[in-house]
């Protein structure tokens, strides 16, 4: 269970990440790793540093110190564009899709297929619609019409499309930022299904939330963060849902688990 040992199939490893904003110490030496085809629940109370950690990973912030290793190579992620190049895709709750644009246009945004009319390149709208629908169908997402405007769809459908898009474009690491906090129970279940489908297709997933019940069903492992430090990594088999919830709220690791986690002890 200790992070330092599974080097064989590590997709991502963040070592001793510090991030200071002036005198505010948002991250104080966090080690975080994700294996291949693993769903990691990144948990923590509001202000614990989850979002900062992810923004460091996706290039919105650069770390004050620390190292990021992606697919065995040390990388320097200084822009969201760089993160995308590496194959890291983030699905933000409000930032996933453009509401006034159609599903197909959203799906292909930034990498639209084109047809050539002499020297002129125009988007191939028919191909865009057909392929987007097929790709989403492939992940199990049924849409009525790829030319429908996203604005008329529910939050869960939008998340699903964003996930399907990441799968289609062969991303390696999918980051879901509080994807289900505004969704109904049924929709949450669907989003979790698609998350699982993404894993089945070889992706790793970081699932950020402060609510353990949303992610317990699909996550393989939980990383809990509190006040800029990591409380620990726990595989699903060794902790109960209640214990994780207590840790997230109190920031204290129960007696039973402490022996196994040297980092938490040295606090």
């Amino acid at each position: 269970m200790n992070s330092m040992q599974n080097n064989g199939d590590n997709l991502l490893e963040m070592r001793d990440i510090h991030k200071y904003f002036g005198s505010v110490r948002a991250l104080r030496g966090i080690d975080f790793h994700v294996d291949r085809q693993e769903i990691v629940g990144l948990l923590g109370d509001n202000g614990a540093g989850k979002s900062t950690l992810i923004k460091v990973l996706t290039g919105f912030h650069t770390p004050t110190s620390g190292e990021i290793v992606f697919e065995g190579e040390s990388v320097y992620i200084d822009s969201p564009h760089r993160a995308r190049e590496l194959g890291i895709e983030t699905v933000y709750q409000d930032l996933a899709l453009v509401p006034l644009m159609s599903i197909a246009r959203n799906f292909w945004l930034g990498q639209e297929p084109t047809r050539n009319f002499g020297p002129v390149k125009l988007m191939d709208q028919e191909q865009m619609a057909v392929e987007a629908a097929a790709a989403l169908e492939d992940v199990g997402i049924h849409i009525r019409d790829a030319n429908e405007v996203v604005g008329s769809m529910s939050g869960g459908e939008r998340q699903s499309i964003a996930i399907g898009r990441a799968v289609y474009f062969g991303k390696k690491l999918l980051i879901l930022d509080e994807p289900t906090s505004a969704l109904s129970v049924g929709e949450t279940r669907k989003v979790l299904e698609y998350t699982y489908a993404a894993k089945e297709r070889g992706m790793s997933v970081i699932f950020i939330t402060h609510n353990i019940s949303q992610v317990h069903a699909v996550a393989d492992r939980f990383t809990i963060i509190s006040r800029g430090r990591k409380l620990g990594d726990f595989t699903k088999s060794e902790v109960s849902e209640e214990e994780v919830a207590t840790m997230v709220m109190s920031g204290v690791v129960p007696e039973r688990l402490r022996l196994f986690d040297p980092e938490a002890v040295d606090d």
Partner: peptide, 25 residues
């Protein structure tokens, strides 16, 4: 309506965050 640039114009106005997340400058 038909070019990739046009598509990015709509995205930038409709949801700058999403546009940025898809690699549009």
């Amino acid at each position: 309506t038909q070019s990739r640039y046009g598509n990015s114009v709509f995205a930038v106005g409709g949801n700058p965050g999403a546009a940025r997340a898809q690699g549009i400058n």
